[in-house]
Design a protein around this nucleic acid. Sequence first.
DNA 1: GTCTCGATTGGCT
DNA 2: GCCAATCGAGACA
Length: 211
Amino acid sequence: MPTPLSPAFFDRDPVKVARELLGGTLVRVLPGGEVLSGRVVEAEAYDCPRDPACTAGRFHAARSAGMAIPAGHWLFWTAHGHPLLQVSCREEGVSASVLIRALEPLSGLGTMLTHRPVTRERDLTSGPARLVYALGLNPLEVSGMRVDSPGLHLLPPEPPLPDEAVTVTARIGIREGRNLPWRFVLRGNPWVSPAVPSMDLLAVDRPTAES
DNA sequence: GTCTCGATTGGCT
DNA sequence: GCCAATCGAGACA
């Protein structure tokens, strides 16, 4: 059983964190002890100092203050009335985070379906807000918790994913900064969120963010 | 109080 | 594929 990722893992470039998070396991332990888990098949990086898509500090300074908490804490962003699960990155005071966009359910599928009844299983967690609903996460309860909390934590991919298993694309659902290759998808996995237009696919297959 | 924005979702065609 | 509903948060009067 791998050790949960510690906050120190997140205290660096969110682009690298997003890449290395891919293939890992998100584990949710319900109060009754039941375990809901899923493999991270899609993740995006947001790094405000160099990211035109990151509205933190522009439109929603106060709202995004949570993104500036110390690295390795859960936080929620809301968009279009839906909660999105993120992990803070970098040192305190810098708004940077990794957004978990999709999971492949591993255990607790039945309970997830009670949280979020869907007709097709692949619709259960194939979206950033969908997985929050499926896991039954309460934003007020989870926000600000350490990323290695017993009730909600992340396990690293074992073994680490090879580059050829990862597709890097432009981010989706945003207006600015969409050309940055900061969206990481498990190649060929059916659980990723709705497909990006083919024109958005970049000619890169591995992270280029060396900073 | 009202308007606007948005990193989404789900229903309809 | 398209589009309306969604609702929390910020801006402004």
